[in-house]
Design a protein around this nucleic acid. Sequence first.
RNA 1: GGCCCCAUCGUCUAGUGGUUAGGACGCCAGGUUUUCAUCCUGGUAACAGGAGUUCGAUUCUCCUUGGGGCUACCA
Length: 462
Amino acid sequence: MAEKQQIRVRFAPSPTGLFHIGTARTALFNYLFAKKNKGEFILRIEDTDLERSEKKYEKDIIENLEWLGLKWDGEIYYQSKRTEIYEKYIKKLLDSGQAFWCDHTKEELEKEKKEQVALKQAPKHICNRRNKAKQGIIRFHCLDEKITFNDLIKGKLEFNGGLLGDIGIAKNEKTPLYNLSVVVDDAEMKISHVIRGEDHISNTPKQIFLYQALGFDLPEFAHLPLILGSDKSKLSKRHGTVSVKEYGKQGYLPEALINFMVFLGWHPGNEEEIFSLKELEQEFSLEKINKSNAIFNIDKLNWYNGHYIRKMDLDELTKKCLPYLEKETDFEYIKKVVALEQERIKKLSEIGELTKFFFIDKLNYEPELLIWKKMTLKEVKNNLEILQEKLSKTGDFSQKSLARTLSALTEKHGTGELLWPLRVALSGQKASPGPFEIMEVLGKEKTLKRIKEAINNEIKNI
RNA sequence: GGCCCCAUCGUCUAGUGGUUAGGACGCCAGGUUUUCAUCCUGGUAACAGGAGUUCGAUUCUCCUUGGGGCUACCA
């Protein structure tokens, strides 16, 4: 019965470091592959190394997956809770003689490796004193034969098993090491496709030997190119790598991160570049992943983020901006302010500084800023007074109406000559939304107050 | 040192023997009746090098160079 194989992939991070962009993209690609093929996406925490594993990193993984919207199927598997399973297979290997105890000390091993490197040989350990005393660690002998497999991304890969030697597979009968635990779990969990970073390529032949020794069917392998830092080296903790969540705190949106990450190594086959998670679940395919590493480029992320901010629903955006705005102000007022900045910000976190002038009482700026091009001080003052006069008689402070109301004046006195001093008087900044927009939000009273202050205080100080 | 992977604009990439080598980000210039931003238009910029195969190589092969990964009683 040729039953169509159920697609099952897993994301298997170890809780020994922060969930960075590279980790996130591996999760994303696994997730997308599962969705696209109506398969399952399993989350497995690889915490066999108790000394390095930390609860906070585990928490970080889960929070990030949730934040990004990458929902896994079923329960979370923890390797630390599966020792009986590994024990069974370790025993099997030991009993069959395929695995054995090796009591060479770390010092001996290091010395051996040094000598091999000096002799330009492949570093490997072949134990010459296998013991039954259960001392040292448990090793597995890799046969001296060629291992080839077809990587779904890289193509045909070939390795010489003779260069591998005796690899460590368990610290003791209950504690498997990485290569053994992945093989056992991937086989037990019926993982159909192992999709992981290409830093695992060299582990694959070792694992294939183990699959064979244990009599498991081989899954498909797909090794993703890596995401490199700006120094072109693999993303890692020591390069100041941060948790993806940190981007969230800085005001990056998950949809921007997703869109950005998927394009690091993948393309849709056309020139479209905006994709939601939902769309990607339909479009994604392993065939469209390229082979070379990609450098993390923050400019592109910023662009994506700006794009998603601009097209976001105003209520939703306002809610997301709240944490960056300290003042406890009326939500409707904040919403108006946010509306003015929506197309100006690249990150949510920028909104605080940009909109300060909407929330404070007294502006603080250099009076010289009021001067437009080569105007004289007298002209500035004069123009502000003209505006003050006109505005004090104006009832409708809607943006549109204001523009209409002042159109005759700007025609007469010059647009820049009138509007620049006005805008600065209102915002105190050299760059801001336009004066009509600001006035509508500020309202008549505050508008006139600021113009008055500019005339009375600021200009006097020049 | 050994093994492995990779190689198109600064960056992300399209390309699968014959293209003015396309797009995006960035950058530059201009426009959208003040600034900034948005938006629009235009511009800048790439096939690492050398052999070979071929009528013809960015594309296929080999070598060199360059970059990356792995080389644990981490994962």
